[in-house]
Amino acid sequence: MLDIMVLEEATLACVRLQGAYGKGIEEACDTLALWAEKDHFNDGELMIFYHDDPKTTVDAKCRTDVCLIVPIDTQAEKGIEIIPFAGGRFATIKRRISHSLEYRSAWEDLYAFIKDAGFELSKSAAGIELYGSYMPFTKVAEVTFCVPVK
């Protein structure tokens, strides 16, 4: 079911990737988790930003940011960038993901719901996955898929 959510502005610790979507995300999550554990940011919410449309951008140029929400005064460290997130209004759907192939269908469903509801997409922000939970051994995740709308 489609919902509208306002995400607040935040400070993010980020590992940036470039290449085909899905490639390197687990490693980036591991890097971020080790850093977060060391600096006691274990309770930060995981957000994955997809900056480019894979239908119009070649895989090698697709940009992904794997991020955690952190306090505003957090300092960068090698391999971790600190970036601002402006927040905004997002169309969302929530899904329980138990297989990697389900991510694509969730994104397709969200865009179909947005089109059917007559919302206009915003050009100002990336599509985002917000992780409510993730079980590393089973790879089952509770994910809110978000697309910026006007």
Score class of each variant (00 low, 15 high):
Ala20Asp: 09
Trp35Ala: 07
Leu17Val: 03
Asp39Leu: 07
Asp30Ile: 12
Ala13Ile: 04
Asp39His: 14
Asp30Asn: 13
Glu26Ala: 14
Glu37Asp: 15
Ala33Gly: 02
Leu12Asp: 02
Trp35Val: 06
Ala20Cys: 04
Lys23Asp: 13
Ala36Glu: 01
Gly24Pro: 13
Glu27Thr: 11
Ala28Phe: 04
Cys14Lys: 02
Glu26Phe: 09
Gly22Met: 11
Phe41Asp: 00
Gly24Trp: 06
Asp30Glu: 14
Tyr21Arg: 05
Glu26Gln: 13
Gly24Gln: 10
Val15Leu: 04
Lys38Gly: 04
Glu37Gly: 11
Lys38Gln: 12
Gly24Leu: 08
Thr31His: 15
Phe41Trp: 11
Leu17Ser: 01
Gly19Leu: 11
Gly24Phe: 07
Glu26Arg: 12
Gly22Ile: 09
Thr31Trp: 03
Gly22Gln: 12
Cys29Tyr: 12
Leu17Ala: 01
Glu27Val: 04
Cys29Pro: 02
His40Cys: 02
Cys14Gly: 00
Leu34Cys: 07
Gln18Trp: 02
Leu34His: 13
Arg16Gly: 10
Leu12Ala: 06
Ile25Val: 15
Asp30Cys: 05
Gln18Ser: 11
Leu12Pro: 03
Lys23His: 09
Asn42His: 01
Glu27Ser: 12
Glu27Gly: 14
Asp30Met: 10
Gly22Lys: 12
Leu12Ile: 08
Cys14Tyr: 00
Leu17Arg: 00
Leu32His: 09
Ala20Gln: 14
Ala28Met: 04
Leu12Gly: 05
Ala20Tyr: 02
Trp35Ile: 10
Asn42Thr: 13
Ile25Glu: 15
Cys29Ala: 09
Gly19Gln: 07
Leu32Glu: 08
Gly24Ser: 06
Leu17Tyr: 01
Ala36Leu: 06
Ala13Gly: 08
Glu26Asn: 11
Glu37Asn: 15
Thr31Pro: 02
Ala20Leu: 14
Phe41His: 15
Gly19Arg: 10
Phe41Gln: 15
Leu34Phe: 11
Gln18Leu: 00
Leu34Gln: 13
Leu34Val: 10
His40Leu: 05
Thr31Phe: 07
Gly22Tyr: 09
Ala28Asp: 05
Glu37Pro: 00
Gln18Ile: 05
Phe41Ser: 00
His40Ala: 11
Ala28Pro: 00
Phe41Met: 13
Leu32Met: 11
Asp30His: 10
Leu32Gly: 06
Leu34Asp: 12
Thr11Asn: 04
Thr11Met: 09
Ala36Tyr: 01
Ala28Ser: 10
Ala20Ser: 05
Gly24Cys: 08
Tyr21Trp: 12
Lys38Phe: 03
Leu12Lys: 02
Ile25Ser: 02
Asp39Pro: 00
Gly24Asp: 08
Thr11Ile: 02
Leu34Glu: 13
Thr11Val: 05
Leu34Trp: 04
Leu32Pro: 07
Arg16Lys: 15
Glu27Ile: 04
Leu32Gln: 08
Thr31Asp: 14
Ala20Glu: 14
Ala33Phe: 10
Trp35Lys: 05
Leu12Val: 10
Leu12Asn: 03
Ala33Ile: 04
Val15Cys: 10
Gln18Asn: 03
Ile25Lys: 06
Leu32Ala: 10
Thr11Gln: 06
